[in-house]
Amino acid sequence: MAEYAKPLPEITAESRPFWEGCKRHQFLVQRCRACGARQHYPRGICAACWSDDLEWLPSAGRGTVYAFTVTYRTQARGFRDELPYVLAYVELEEGVQVLTNLVGGEPATLRIGMPVRVTFEDVSADVSIPRFTPA
């Protein structure tokens, strides 16, 4: 596997289930057992009610583009060698927004509201990075 030049996640005990899901190519969304709220990014408490009784819901991995920008200049590691690239918010069918990249589509064809699906890049034995691509 070629050296991965972009930043890697610093996985903690709190976030490990999310990253283990990614390794299985499953995008997990947290759901609160106390109030039912769903959230991303994952964390140790429910952001709605502060309960710590949370479960992991496998997302269908489908959503729509909420916002995107085509970046032509950056100093960001790995990305500065692959210009232009697309930074985006995707809104999952499960109702949460996810900051991500859009890959596999011509920037000129991208639109807010267009359907997308998750895709995973296996960057090491331990880490798979979720991104989204036109559905």
């Binding site: 972009k6 991303h40 930074l87 991104r131």
Partner: peptide
Amino acid sequence: QFEGLYGIS
């Protein structure tokens, strides 16, 4: 770990 992977500036 959720935002910094995507070339944010």
